[in-house]
Simulated assay, not measured.
Amino acid sequence: MALSKELEALQQFRCSEGKCVLSVYLNTDRADQDQQKGEWKIRLKNGLKKLEEYLQAAGDDNQLKSYQKMKDKVEKEIHGNQTLLQKGVVIFASEEQDLWSVHYLQVPVETSFHWETTPIVDQLEQIQRDYPKSAVILPNMDEVKVYDVDLGELHESHTYTFNPDTEEWTFKEGLASADRTASGASHVDGFEQRFRENLHRFYKGMATTIERMQSKRKWEKVYLVGEPEMVRSLESQLRIKVSGKVNKNLNNARSSNVIDQVFQ
């Protein structure tokens, strides 16, 4: 489920009795001066411990037991998935309705911990305002990648390849374009020369596909990432506004690195 859709569900969630929802926002951004040595581990431990001590002092055994189950689940989740840590982790957990919402974000969050009757979604709402539904598009020689990004988080990825015989773009299936064009250097060089000479015409079909996707997926912003020549050519064919450009060839980079370059 896209994070923006999940946010709508979280906004409607209410405990039937008392407090039952653990909301965790954890800053794990290694670029942050306060995170150079994994300080998030200490903040996670101390933040959860403080809430537990508060519930112990309140003397509500039912709430305490429920909280402890969610606390243990959250700690296990984060410590067990340290390779997924990017800039922030957001978790909402409750025994009621089996609420379990986990997101490893590529946008920063401010560390905070809450045990309340509803999920505390103020930071997610702010992220939604700062990082609306967007497309990150990477035009390359005979391949175009389209990332559907929601609240700074990759939702879907699509790759299209160009067929030089039909001069059409198709959703990528099977062998990568590099495999298909590797029959000989002269063949590759000939295709590259032909493609560069016809960039505007060849990208026109891809631009139409992007425009249809934008209408269907309700992207509020569109970003282009690639070599300046490719970016300029695709932008010239688009009838939708381009919100930003990164003039680097990141086609072989991980999607998380690409999105980070766009939203840094």
Rank of each mutant, 00 (worst) to 15 (best):
164 P>F: 04
62 N>F: 07
116 E>D: 09
130 D>L: 12
148 D>F: 14
62 N>C: 05
168 E>N: 03
84 L>P: 03
78 I>M: 12
160 Y>D: 11
121 V>F: 02
117 T>V: 15
67 Y>N: 02
166 T>K: 01
126 Q>D: 13
98 D>A: 04
103 H>K: 01
126 Q>F: 13
73 K>N: 00
131 Y>D: 10
61 D>W: 02
106 Q>I: 08
87 K>N: 04
136 V>L: 04
68 Q>L: 05
140 N>K: 15
109 V>F: 08
91 I>K: 02
154 L>S: 13
152 G>I: 09
58 A>P: 09
162 F>W: 13
75 E>D: 04
109 V>H: 08
57 A>Y: 01
144 V>F: 09
95 E>H: 06
132 P>F: 11
107 V>R: 13
95 E>V: 05
126 Q>L: 14
96 E>V: 05
121 V>M: 02
175 L>D: 04
78 I>K: 13
139 P>F: 13
107 V>P: 07
68 Q>S: 03
89 V>F: 10
69 K>A: 02
70 M>T: 01
120 I>M: 14
150 D>L: 01
115 W>I: 06
179 D>H: 00
161 T>K: 05
60 D>I: 03
87 K>V: 02
76 K>F: 06
58 A>Y: 08
67 Y>V: 01
140 N>W: 12
78 I>S: 11
73 K>E: 06
157 S>T: 12
159 T>A: 15
69 K>F: 08
131 Y>C: 11
140 N>G: 15
99 L>M: 05
69 K>P: 01
61 D>E: 12
171 F>Y: 13
179 D>N: 00
87 K>D: 03
152 G>S: 06
73 K>T: 09
180 R>K: 08
83 T>F: 14
170 T>A: 06
73 K>Y: 02
59 G>F: 07
151 L>E: 03
115 W>G: 12
85 L>I: 00
110 E>D: 15
90 V>F: 10
63 Q>A: 01
129 R>F: 15
118 T>P: 06
106 Q>K: 15
125 E>C: 02
125 E>R: 07
171 F>I: 15
80 G>C: 08
147 Y>S: 09
152 G>M: 10
155 H>W: 10
111 T>F: 12
111 T>H: 12
62 N>S: 08
101 S>C: 15
86 Q>D: 07
100 W>K: 04
143 E>R: 04
90 V>I: 09
60 D>P: 00
112 S>C: 15
62 N>K: 08
98 D>P: 01
78 I>C: 12
128 Q>K: 09
156 E>R: 14
114 H>D: 10
60 D>V: 02
57 A>H: 08
91 I>C: 10
119 P>A: 03
91 I>R: 02
140 N>M: 13
176 A>I: 14
148 D>P: 11
63 Q>E: 04
141 M>L: 15
107 V>C: 15
179 D>Q: 07
175 L>H: 07
173 E>C: 00
107 V>T: 12
103 H>F: 11
126 Q>M: 10
134 S>M: 11
129 R>P: 09
131 Y>P: 07
123 Q>K: 14
155 H>T: 02
61 D>L: 01
153 E>W: 13
